[in-house]
Design a protein around this nucleic acid. Structure first.
Lengths: 157, 157
DNA sequence: TATTGTTATACTCTATAACTATA
DNA sequence: TATAGTTATAGAGTATAACAATA
């Protein structure tokens, strides 16, 4: 390594200029960074009503589907049974959700009055979040994007 | 628990039908699910060359920018300084990266020969991943999507 | 003082394995 | 046997706080 190396920028070593980042050409990378950033913002806002994004999704789903069982929620949201257990346990402990025996080891989940309020709050936060960041996108493009993104995860696994 | 309860579906309780999921109308939710699924697939493939997605991004960045410092990598990839430390330490311990004193407490990072190989492997895996999932998208739409997604995280924070 | 690097710590999310209970 | 639920555990990723070393 010689001294002039650092002064002669090459294609691979822009030492003082902005470093190159070939990852930005990858659509997957862009998707990951955008999703990560947007989720961070959403998480902050949901934290103000004492919910994590997962808890928000779960309680919204329960509010819209009374007596739904844990496993079904997990299947819909892509959360494993083992990870649903502490999630619903916490919601129940905080008085947001109630359990009713159904049959077998299963029980139906229903929101309490304060749970319904939490679900409405969560839905409002998420809708505002969606409008803020995606409101400028035309309905046609929205539909296109929704269809495109849905293809990746729906009926996959 | 009475028998007819489970047999009388109402608007809110489609017990046997497909549960409603209003979240799917949210573009943010679609983005999150798609990104999560695609990252899962990528993580599996990178695991076959003993890299996590973070490690893959970091080593690709080092290979393309010799003598880059940790903090700079963190700024570019959106990884906090405190989280970069164990990451680069692991890459160094595995003989993929070398440190060279630069000045202050900083040191430049450079890939070793096996590190360069790992970076090339990682880039190949990511490019194949991108082509597999986004190859069908036209160059025009690709650019549109890249610009759209980039707006969310670039120069944000 | 500002930057770099490090350690400690904690939380969220995810994943697997092993177990019980019930249809 | 298949499904539902639980517990334990581990690993990524991310966040903050506090500290040392150096320009």
């Amino acid at each position: 390594m010689t001294a002039n190396d650092a002064d002669t920028p090459t294609k691979n070593t822009p030492t003082s200029a902005t470093p190159s980042n070939t990852l930005e050409d990858h659509l997957g990378y862009q998707l990951r960074r955008a999703s990560s950033y947007l989720m961070g913002v959403l998480a902050q806002r949901l934290a103000q009503i004492n919910l994590t994004p997962s808890e928000g999704s779960v309680i919204i789903l329960i509010a819209g589907n009374e007596r739904i069982i844990q496993s079904e929620i997990g299947r819909i949201l892509g959360i494993k049974r083992a990870n649903m257990a502490p999630l619903t346990a916490s919601l129940e402990r905080r008085g947001l959700v109630e359990r009713q025996a159904i049959g077998g080891k299963a029980f139906g989940l229903t929101v309490t009055p304060s749970g319904r309020q939490a679900a409405e709050d969560a839905e409002r936060v998420m809708l505002e979040h969606d409008r803020e960041f995606f409101g400028a996108i035309s309905p046609q493009s929205r539909q296109l994007l929704t269809d495109l993104l849905g293809q990746y995860w729906k009926n996959a696994e």
